[in-house]
Design a protein around this nucleic acid. Sequence first.
RNA 1: UCCCCGAUAGCUCAAUGGUAGAGCGAGCGGCUGUUAACCGCUAGGUUCUAGGUUCGAAUCCUAGUCGGGGAGCCA
Length: 502
Amino acid sequence: METVTAIRQLCDHVGQTVRLRGWVYHSRPGGKITFLVLRDGTGLCQCVIEKNDASAGFYDDIKRLAQESSLEVTGTVSADERSTGGFEVRVSDARVIHPARDYPITPKAHGIEFLMKHRHLWFRSKRPWHVLRIRSTVVDQIRRFFNDNGYVLIDTPIFAPAAGEGSQTLFKVDYFGEEVYLAQTGQLYLEAACMAHGKVYCFGPTFRAEKSKTRRHLTEFWMVEPEIAFASLDDVLNVAEDFICSIAERVLRDHRDELVELGRNLEDLQAIKKPFYRVTYSQAAELLRGPKSKALLESDLKEKSIRLGELDQRITDLESTAKSGSASQWAKDKAAAEAIELREERSELQEQIGNIPHHIELAQNFEWGGDLGGSDETIISRLHDRPVFVTHYPKHCKAFYMREDRSDERVVENFDLLAPQGFGEIIGGSAREEDYDRLLARINHEHLPQADYEWYLDLRRYGSVPHGGFGLGVERTVAWLCGLKHIRETIPYPRMMGKFYP
RNA sequence: UCCCCGAUAGCUCAAUGGUAGAGCGAGCGGCUGUUAACCGCUAGGUUCUAGGUUCGAAUCCUAGUCGGGGAGCCA
């Protein structure tokens, strides 16, 4: 194969002649000079093609090349601050590999529906490119953390005979005429394996048939679940804390540029250090009902209302500029473009403002015993500048296998980890009930078929020990780290309710 | 399953119940060390579907389809 230089490595080739292969990211063709931004998978590089250059027989071919055409160019590298990426290549020769036509994703704004339909092409755009690289690093760090800390990888089955926790939210599969389900967790299987290996984890896709259409839900997502023998709830919390810190550090170390490009506030991520906050469910309930939570939302409401007023004024001004006879065409266009952006912000703001009173009401009237809602989690996480563990939820709203708190049997030794800045839950975990009688009582109480859980009960018959673990949602974690609103952008091909194309 | 919002040119969006528009993209030409460049011209529409109200519907009403956001549930 001929020598081809990666754009990322151009810094090592200043002054040299190199060959690049890639796609046209953007081009500004002209009569005498054409600027063409080339994308090769490792980065972007501006290529300058001047018609006057000696062997410029290819000039007109290059000039007409449309977005995403593939080509090979040869030229001299120089450092140039005016250029995308800091380097540019003055082209002495070029060869078109495939001329594209009418690439659908133009350098202008597009809606999410359109982009998702073109997910296979959208990969090439900057934002998905950054996000999926960060995802790749997060996944690598997850594996590294557990492999380096003495955990054994146990692959759990995707075809599962019975519901892991609840039921009804699973995908049914016809398994040679019998009914099985796509796994929603590997946890129960892991518990068995951790009695053999001490510390284990599983990592793979998991499936939920919940009919949720929200920014936090996918029907197919990736989850990593560690399980640890001889561990108390505190031990598990400590592992989760170290684990999250290691991921945040790694992403900050390897993807500073990408995070900046995505507009992520780096200070927020640098603040992800031990110790995280630990509050019990009961304390969280107090916090929600208390003055701090109300004050937060009320000041929110005030700020957003002020902003809304500013927006209205600005939009009115822009609209009159856009229609004014005296303004230049250029000024009118800019005004119209800005108005469109601001209208979008206004409509989001209006929705948020409309929801705040409801959220205040939910928080103020929160009663002990109910599960924390999405808005409640948001409030709790926004009242803290680092991740928050919420522990000891009421027993009746949690799964049967969670360990009863021996000092308060109304609650179980579980926890959720809420990511800061209002991102909400990224981890759910617990100590598992190790006592045979208590576990059996819970199984019966939930009307679960005992026969299906005999193997699971065996773990409490033969050398039962305290143990626990948790599950981390990869997409939610990546969305939080990248500062994305919606998790659909953090997985290459999102699967959501009613959507599976492409 | 429930609640709220939306659907107008390839894309992003305008349009008091009264002749359907702009920018980008596409095509042609000009110009330029350009940065989402700029300037001129051209093409581009069954206003989601089916009914209804009206002299007249993109606009109002009903139903449906699809999409967005949220509730429940959860990673």
